[in-house]
Simulated assay, not measured.
Amino acid sequence: MSKILIVENLTKSFQSSGRSLTVLDDVSFTVEEGESLAIVGPSGSGKTTLLGLCAGLDVSTSGFVSLAEMKLNAMGEDDRAYVRNQFVGFIFQNFQLLPTLTALENVTVPLELRGEKIYKEKGRELLDRVGLGDRMDHYPSQLSGGEQQRVAMARAFITSPKILFADEPTGNLDEETAEKVTELLFNINKQEGTTLVMVTHNLELAAHTERILQIKGGKLVSDKKSSEVS
């Protein structure tokens, strides 16, 4: 298996009130194609910052990220956006659906941006797979939180991404809905053979992945198979 994600000596600092604040400090790890990985840690530990750097939403102060054999740090924003559109899927805690678009239109946006023609058919198929075949013409405001996250999940998979980044994907859902969304996410991810990198504070959710990285105070303090984490 080849490495789809390489993170090497990654450091991210910000200027705050005239002082330098280091959010990530010399973090290194690799992810194989098809692997599932959770990044856990307390609030403010740098998890979401790390995810954003891995996905090319931001660039590090030092060190580098290689995604699908491309070094993101050497790219401008337009090139990083192209890499994201071609290789990356996203699921966010707050769904990030466009309120003026229907469920189907939200799902198909990434393929439309690529200029692909047969996008509605694939969108319908994915909404069927997440159990929303009868809700395609509904707007986000007409959907429950769990339904909105399932729409977001369908949108994330529509481009057949090589890697999926999920940021607290069940964070805004009640326990029962979260369990259903988790089962659906991991089932589709397995069927598609997608690499999954997920940020969560929920250790039960993290246990569904093959490997768990623990971040504390911006440092990587543990990298274990999920079966070895108590």
Rank of each mutant, 00 (worst) to 15 (best):
173 L>W: 02
144 S>K: 01
134 D>W: 08
85 N>H: 11
22 T>R: 03
28 S>R: 07
180 K>S: 06
17 S>C: 04
73 N>I: 00
52 G>N: 13
41 G>H: 14
70 M>S: 15
216 K>P: 13
4 I>S: 02
138 H>R: 14
68 A>N: 15
163 I>Q: 03
148 Q>K: 12
10 L>Q: 07
108 T>F: 15
140 P>L: 11
8 E>W: 03
62 S>I: 12
56 G>C: 12
199 V>H: 02
201 H>M: 05
197 V>H: 08
48 T>G: 06
195 T>K: 00
85 N>Q: 10
101 L>H: 05
1 M>S: 11
210 E>K: 11
17 S>A: 14
127 L>S: 08
141 S>W: 01
7 V>Y: 04
229 V>T: 10
41 G>R: 12
189 N>D: 02
229 V>D: 05
92 F>E: 00
200 T>D: 12
36 S>R: 05
119 Y>T: 08
196 L>V: 07
86 Q>M: 07
195 T>E: 00
29 F>R: 06
122 K>C: 05
23 V>Y: 00
156 A>W: 05
92 F>M: 04
21 L>N: 11
223 D>P: 14
197 V>K: 00
30 T>L: 11
83 V>D: 07
214 Q>M: 13
7 V>N: 03
89 G>H: 06
151 V>H: 01
87 F>G: 03
78 D>W: 04
69 E>R: 15
58 D>V: 00
104 L>F: 07
193 G>D: 03
62 S>M: 14
25 D>P: 00
220 L>I: 13
156 A>F: 09
38 A>L: 10
52 G>E: 14
181 V>M: 00
82 Y>M: 13
30 T>N: 15
224 K>D: 11
72 L>T: 11
173 L>A: 02
162 K>E: 15
22 T>P: 05
201 H>Y: 02
154 A>H: 05
99 P>M: 07
158 I>T: 11
18 G>W: 08
67 L>D: 02
15 Q>K: 06
157 F>K: 14
156 A>N: 02
21 L>D: 11
14 F>Y: 15
64 F>M: 11
94 N>L: 08
105 E>Y: 12
190 K>N: 13
134 D>F: 10
139 Y>L: 14
106 N>I: 04
223 D>Y: 00
207 A>V: 01
57 L>N: 04
42 P>G: 10
37 L>A: 06
105 E>R: 01
60 S>Y: 07
49 T>K: 08
35 E>K: 07
